[in-house]
Design a protein around this nucleic acid. Structure first.
Lengths: 128, 128
DNA sequence: GCTTGAGTTGGAGTTAACTCCAGGTGTTAT
DNA sequence: ATAACACCTGGAGTTAACTCCAACTCAAGC
């Protein structure tokens, strides 16, 4: 697969794909005889995986470490697992935070409905 | 309340508090006769509100707009409500994204448990 | 054989969100 | 009244994560 196809398929710019490869966020992609990237199925899996993880806010640094460990082979299985467990923990924490914020937003929106119903009677300032 | 107290209370650096005020992310805080910030209860509510919203990833730009609308008074109630509803939508979308990623992490971790049990039998590369 | 277009590299520039700093003022303790 | 300290302002610097660019190569079409 060419870089433009991968870019299209996963909706990631070519610049970003090259950048990810450069910093080791995805393993190095093979080039064809004329020097152009030729993404294998596995390369695509990495791109998709990274996109997903980045989307959930896992830091690039951590993902680079994961990829690095992966490339070092089977003896890093424990380390990789530990890394994933830590990231799961943090992800859950972020989600809980967001849930609280969501509830707060819901509450505020409900108050605004209220306010509109009562002809925009002023909302108490102390509640923003 | 002094800036150091507010900083302590909400675990936000003084620099960040000043920065937030400078860009209009919180309304302007009154100064005492010697020019130092004196945070009222309401100022604190804003700080806490903004911290919460930022923590859930609402962009600063949007929050600045919200604060701006708030300061323009009752005629912006509808606009504020619309803004909050939009942010709620986006927050829910982000949370759903994260939930999918979490499931994926869970799955990977389970696979690693598996791998460890079978004495680190190699994980298929195509599954990262 | 020349242009066009997709791709290459290394490096510079950008954006968001802080974070730090220099030089100054006002209050408090010795 | 001198030092120490908390805080002030405007502006510069930093970090993460891209994003853009110049100068080049290669293959395809006319």
């Amino acid at each position: 697969m060419t870089i433009s196809e991968v870019s299209e398929k996963f909706d990631i710019s070519q610049d970003t794909l090259r950048y990810y490869e450069r910093i080791g966020l995805i393993p190095r992609v093979n080039r064809n005889k004329s020097g152009m990237r030729d993404y294998t199925e596995e390369d695509c899996n990495w791109v998709e995986f990274i996109k997903c993880m980045r989307g959930a806010g896992l830091p690039i640094e951590v993902l680079i470490e994961y990829v690095g460990l992966f490339q070092q082979g089977a003896e890093t299985v424990e380390a990789r697992k530990g890394l994933l467990i830590e990231q799961r923990k943090q992800l859950i924490a972020r989600m809980e935070d967001m849930k609280k914020t969501l509830e707060r937003l819901e509450y505020k929106i409900a108050r605004y409905e209220q306010a509109v119903v009562v002809k925009e009677k002023e909302l108490k300032k102390s509640e923003n």
